Amino acid sequence: MPRTGSRTIRRRRGFLSAAGALLAAIALLLALPGAAAAAPHDDSPIKPGEAWMGAGVQQHEGDPTDGTPPPTLAATVEGVDVSSHQGNVNWSSLWSSGVKWAYVKATEGTSYKNPYFTQQYNGSYNIGMIRGAYHFALPNNSSGASQANYFATNGGGWSKDGKTLPGVLDIEYNPYGATCYGLSQSAMVSWIRDFTTTYKARTGRDAVIYTTTNWWSQCTGNNSSFGSTNPLWIARYASSPGTLPAGWGFYTFWQYTSSGPIVGDHNVFNGAYDRLKVLANG
């Protein structure tokens, strides 16, 4: 018995020694430069300029999806949205996987420009995708007109080339503070109208509005006045887009997951490819 006990103790010591060595190796790897860098969609606090399309959605509504495309109508087209978090994107891999359109973050507020915008915006275009740009709104930062002009000047313009989609107003949960940015429902509606009216005057196109039904209901009072002019991009990480905000009878884009394969959030265009080209052409 004593010898058996000694062998058992030695085995346990050997196991603990090996486990300690493994933990030390992991600690060493984490100490390497860049090893502890935050993943694009982790739980680290978001710094000014770092918000992406859906940042607030994840915080407030979560994302139980695994990136698998939901069962949808056959006539849909797969797309992605990207920001600085994705860096230089391998557009050929996305194209080969079936992604045919992309939206790229251009601006946020009136002081941030995506440093990877050129590679992402031109790269998606050059590989053959229909692409567009989006603006992350900060309604507590400056007026809607100011941000629309900043966006239109810094990547959010539009040209009738058959491959450029109208710009997107990303208006969602505030990832930096108060959900509705400290604005009343009527003030938020006025801010959105200020942005969309100015963007239309600058580009000749009605901006797409990206939002969630919950946020829209809470922060605009479920205002129904934009549905007849501005295409809807609904964000809902589930097997269906669910109930839409007031005023919209259908969605144009649906962001169905923030956990898509390869890179970026994944979405579908609600129609066949030829209809996507119609939207691009205006």
Rank of each mutant, 00 (worst) to 15 (best):
I171W: 12
N126M: 08
A25F: 12
N230F: 06
G157Y: 02
W248Q: 11
K113S: 08
Y251F: 13
A152D: 02
P175N: 10
W233N: 07
F250M: 09
N270D: 04
N214V: 11
Y273V: 03
A18P: 06
N270I: 03
T118M: 03
A27W: 14
W215K: 05
P64A: 13
S143E: 03
N214C: 02
K100R: 13
A39E: 12
L22M: 13
P115H: 12
C219N: 06
V77W: 01
A235W: 00
G271I: 06
L22K: 07
G271M: 04
L94T: 05
T153I: 02
T4W: 10
P115D: 13
V104I: 13
A133F: 04
D66I: 10
S225M: 09
T118E: 13
I171H: 03
G20T: 09
I171V: 14
S96L: 12
T198S: 10
I127A: 12
L138C: 05
P70K: 09
A201M: 14
Y125F: 12
D170S: 09
K47E: 04
V82E: 02
G20C: 10
M53L: 15
A19L: 14
T198Q: 07
N90V: 10
L22S: 14
Q218C: 10
N140T: 04
S111V: 15
T252C: 00
G282R: 15
L73F: 12
Q185M: 08
V189C: 08
S146H: 06
P261H: 10
Q147M: 09
F269M: 03
V99I: 14
P64M: 05
L32D: 04
K277M: 08
W216M: 15
G249H: 03
Y173G: 01
Y237C: 07
A246L: 00
P40C: 05
A106V: 13
L23A: 12
T164A: 00
F195H: 00
I26H: 01
Y121C: 02
I9R: 14
D194G: 00
A137C: 03
V77M: 09
S143Y: 05
G49I: 00
T220A: 03
F15H: 01
Y237I: 03
T179C: 04
L32K: 13
I9F: 14
A25I: 15
N230I: 07
R236S: 07
L138G: 09
L276N: 01
S259C: 08
P231R: 07
G167E: 01
G242S: 14
V80H: 12
A152V: 02
K47A: 07
